[in-house]
């Protein structure tokens, strides 16, 4: 499912436009599985799955699989409907250079919400 992030994000013209000053690679940890997601000027250029020997990224978002599952459900329950809701409950850890994450917070929230069942909003 996470592989579809590229087409889902790149297919949203507004989201790509809002990310036009964003070029970075971040690490997404879903339980035991890691993904490196490379972004160039708002477009996702690659989504690679681990394990990695020496993953290099600007920042990492790490949460247990069951938490992401709730976040990506069509209508997430209270406490699972937003990245910061997960952070508030201390189940999502954001680590690394968080200036990249925070300066494009709307982009990352909307990009990751793209993995929700189609038709749902961020």
């Amino acid at each position: 499912m996470i592989e579809t992030l590229r087409e889902r994000v790149n297919g949203d013209e507004g989201l790509v436009r809002r990310g036009r000053y964003l070029t970075t690679t971040f690490l997404l940890e879903v339980g035991q599985t890691c993904w490196l997601i490379q972004i160039f000027e708002g477009r996702i250029v690659s989504v690679a799955s681990g394990p990695f020997v020496m993953p290099s990224s600007s920042f990492a978002l790490r949460a247990p699989e069951e938490e992401w599952k709730k976040f990506w459900s069509a209508r997430p329950p209270p406490g699972s409907n937003d990245l910061l809701a997960l952070v508030k409950r201390r189940v999502l850890k954001a680590e690394g250079n968080l200036q990249v994450f925070m300066s494009h917070l709307r982009y990352f929230k909307e990009a990751l919400a793209k993995l929700r069942a189609q038709g749902a909003t961020a």
């Binding site: 409907n81 937003d82 990245l83 910061l84 300066s103 709307r106 929230k109």
Partner: peptide
């Protein structure tokens, strides 16, 4: 402005 809006959007 961008970050304040984005911080509270999920609320």
């Amino acid at each position: 402005g961008e970050v304040c809006g984005a911080i509270v959007s999920g609320l």
